[in-house]
Simulated scan of single mutants.
Amino acid sequence: MPDATAAPAAPLAEPLAGCGCTVPMASANGEPRKAVAVDAGAKERNRKRLRRIEGQVRGLQKMVDDDRYCADILTQIASVHEALRAVGRELMRNHLKHCATAAIRQGQTEAEGMYDELVEMVYRTAR
């Protein structure tokens, strides 16, 4: 529970409703919000994984078009799911390392919002 007597730290930007970080939904020129920081190596690994996943999905489309055996298609779908989970794990690590850490260090109000965001994110991604 936030301490009502503590003065909240001045946010860097208007926080997204329900979001613990102070990254705005969009910048003044309408650009989508950006991560606080992104590890260059992680970004490149994710780009490679996503390109591979894109190829896997095209392969799935071809399997469906070719009336391939259902169990084989389902096996490939499971493979795509796992590849997407790997990207999600990498993104979660980056979010915890940079975005969440920055919000938590800003003060109790921002920390409470980030805790709520993280709990919701874990539940959403664990399905």
Rank of each mutant, 00 (worst) to 15 (best):
M1F: 13
P2F: 10
A6C: 07
A6I: 14
A7S: 11
P8T: 10
A9I: 06
P11C: 11
L12V: 05
L12C: 03
P15H: 08
A17W: 12
G20H: 01
T22W: 11
V23C: 06
P24V: 10
M25W: 12
A28Y: 11
A28P: 00
G30T: 07
P32Q: 06
P32K: 06
R33Y: 13
V36S: 00
A37L: 08
A37G: 02
A37S: 08
V38E: 07
A40K: 04
G41T: 08
E44W: 02
E44P: 01
N46C: 15
R47F: 09
R49L: 15
E54N: 14
Q56S: 09
Q56D: 13
L60S: 03
V64N: 07
D67A: 08
R68M: 09
R68N: 10
Y69C: 05
C70S: 10
A71C: 03
I73L: 05
T75H: 04
S79E: 15
V80R: 02
R85G: 08
M92N: 04
N94D: 10
H98I: 00
A100D: 00
A100C: 14
T101V: 00
R105C: 06
R105V: 01
T109E: 13
E110D: 09
E112D: 11
E112F: 07
G113S: 10
G113R: 01
M114W: 00
M114R: 02
M114T: 02
Y115K: 13
D116E: 15
V119R: 13
V119Q: 11
Y123M: 15
Y123G: 06
R124N: 12
T125P: 00
T125W: 11
R127K: 15
R127P: 00
